[in-house]
């Protein structure tokens, strides 16, 4: 095996220095873009070049958030949305994955259901809103169901195509080792599609928020989607912007958790 080099050449030091410098620049400009955006926003509304009644402003958002934190409503609404999103996310991911395994297992069943899945995939799930409310009632259940419907089809389709794309040669290898179908699934198909599963998780993080917010638009008494609709109706743009801001943070946090899982899996 190769020995590890310990005394580096000058060229290497220069190279490492350049790498560090580039990384610093990227981080610097990232922060710069945010600060410049917020600063410009504040400045334009402060000088009344833009009307804060329609576009709100960072200082007004902070004030709004402060008052909601002190009254405790912020955590309540955030928790409601987070709960709906996570439950929907989990149900859709697990169920979608299992359906994909089932469809992989049985080719005939797969062929029978293929057109139905295509239709379900293209159908805008929001169209089912009224039916959902009639069936499971208005409220949390309807919102979770909306979330599940939005995520599940894409989960099933992505995972199924990942399963079917598995290297035929490797399947042949296992067959030549006298493996049964369950062993092929367990030893090859599932681990080989781990990468695709992580990208499905990443997509589902975004999609499940679409589901829960859309569900809250349809029917809700609490949640960030509820705040956004309510704020819009009473022309309180500060409330809309605050809720959107919290939503940004939530979406980022969930994405970061998935990225962490991905890193852990890679090691």
């Amino acid at each position: 095996m190769k020995k590890k080099i310990t005394n580096f050449s000058l060229a290497h030091k220069k190279y490492v220095k350049k790498l560090k410098k580039d990384k610093f620049l990227v981080i610097f400009f990232r922060i710069f873009v945010l600060v410049a955006f917020l600063g410009l926003w504040e400045l334009l509304t402060y000088t009344k070049a833009l009307d804060p009644f329609f576009v709100s402003s960072p200082s007004r958002i902070i004030k709004q958030l402060e008052s909601m934190i002190s009254s405790g409503t912020l955590f309540h609404h955030t928790f409601v949305t987070l709960y709906e999103t996570l439950i929907g996310f989990l149900i859709a991911t697990v169920l979608g994955y299992l359906i994909a395994v089932g469809l992989w297992w049985n080719e005939k069943v797969r062929k029978v259901f293929e057109p139905y899945i295509v239709v379900l995939n293209s159908l805008p799930k929001i169209a089912l809103g009224p039916i959902i409310i009639l069936w499971v009632g208005a409220g949390t259940n309807a919102i979770i169901l909306m979330c599940v419907l939005i995520c599940i089809v894409i989960t099933t389709m992505s995972m199924l195509s990942a399963f079917l794309n598995c290297d035929e040669g490797k399947i042949l290898l296992l067959k030549s080792m006298n493996a049964n179908k369950f062993q092929i699934l367990w030893k090859l198909i599932l681990p080989a599609s781990m990468k695709d599963f992580i990208s499905v998780l990443k997509i589902n993080v975004g999609m499940s928020f679409v589901g829960s917010i859309m569900g809250e638009y349809l029917t809700s008494k609490a949640g960030l989607g509820y705040l956004i609709v309510y704020g819009g109706q009473i022309f309180k743009i500060d409330l809309v912007m605050s809720a959107t801001f919290i939503l940004c943070i939530l979406a980022y946090l969930l994405y970061a958790i998935v990225s962490l899982i991905e890193k852990k899996y890679r090691n």
């Binding site: 290297d167 040669g169 490797k170 042949l172 290898l173 030549s176 006298n178 681990p191 080989a192």
Partner: peptide, 14 residues
């Protein structure tokens, strides 16, 4: 099949 060992063109390592 247990009596047979099959080695492929590609190594097929996981």
């Amino acid at each position: 099949r247990r009596k047979i060992g099959y080695m492929f063109q590609r190594d097929m390592l996981f």
